[in-house]
């Protein structure tokens, strides 16, 4: 393979009536990622291609898109692994398009924030100005560790069939992160999160299609987190009440 045919979906909602496809011939080099190919096209062939990226190493979660129809991180997908010279790149579904491949994460982050993705303590003063670390056993960390790897790339959100129709459904990322904090022994805000999720457009609208876990590039397994969290919502009881979180470390 000496070159790749990169087909980019072009769409500017401000100007275009509907999306169109534009083809670029990009010279191939060993180890080239799809993001490399897009950046080559943008730098040398067409400066107007809209794409978001940052770290180029699957850490920042900026370059999620559909590559040959499959949702993936462009920086994490080698051209060689696709096994084709023609690569079609499109923006992720379920996200508003800002331009071409760049999508708007406002709604996604709003939903994430709504579920309080941070430790909540009854003693707010102590929480704001902690004097020491909160205690946590290794086995307690293991229960939440994989969910902390979420890079908020939005791939799970883009494939969720419920998000595709229900604008109020928080989506797999936000709910899995809610589980991460509800299960965290240092947290005392579980019941508030469960109440937020127990509504006609909340956690019950997940039907375990599992696509979120299938596309997650970091192995977070949001579907697992959602199902485990649902047990608590069903019982109407968080694992800890206010004041029952782990205590600050003392010598």
């Amino acid at each position: 393979m000496s070159y790749v045919k990169l087909v980019v979906q072009r769409y500017d909602p401000e100007r275009d009536e509907k999306p169109r496809f534009q083809e670029y011939i990009v010279p191939y080099r060993k180890g080239m990622t799809v993001l490399d190919a897009i950046l080559y096209a943008r730098d040398y062939l067409d400066h107007s291609i809209g794409v978001r990226f940052s770290c180029r190493m699957a850490s920042c979660g900026s370059c999620g898109m559909k590559i040959n129809g499959k949702p993936a991180l462009a920086c994490y997908t080698q051209v060689s692994e696709l096994g084709t010279e023609r690569i079609v790149v499109q923006p992720m579904d379920n996200f508003p398009v800002i331009k071409d491949l760049a999508t708007d994460f406002e709604e996604f982050f709003e939903k994430h924030k709504e579920l309080m993705p941070y430790l909540v303590r009854e003693d707010r003063a102590e929480q704001e100005n902690p004097k020491s670390e909160y205690l946590m056993k290794p086995e307690e960390l293991e229960r939440i560790l994989q969910f902390t790897y979420c890079i908020k790339c939005g791939l799970c959100y883009s494939v969720c069939p419920t998000v595709g129709t229900d604008k109020l459904f928080p989506g797999p990322q936000a709910i899995a992160q809610a589980y991460r904090y509800v299960e965290d022994v240092r947290d005392e805000g579980g019941e508030t999160r469960l109440n937020i999720l127990d509504n006609p457009h909340g956690i019950w609208r997940c039907h375990f299609a599992g696509s979120c876990s299938a596309v997650c590039p970091k192995g977070v397994d949001p579907a697992l987190g959602i199902q485990l969290l649902r047990r608590y919502v069903m019982r109407g009881k968080a694992p800890r009440k206010k004041g029952e979180g782990s205590k600050p470390f003392t010598k």
Binding site: P13, P91, D93, N94, P161, G164, F208, A209, G210, S211
Partner: peptide, 26 residues
């Protein structure tokens, strides 16, 4: 543009997600 990209009912069926028998079952 926001609404154009939401999948809608056609997103119920999505054979493009790899390793995802659960999506078919859904």
């Amino acid at each position: 543009g926001r609404e154009r990209n939401r999948r809608g009912i056609r997103g119920w069926f999505d054979p493009t997600v790899p390793n995802n028998l659960e999506r078919w079952a859904y």
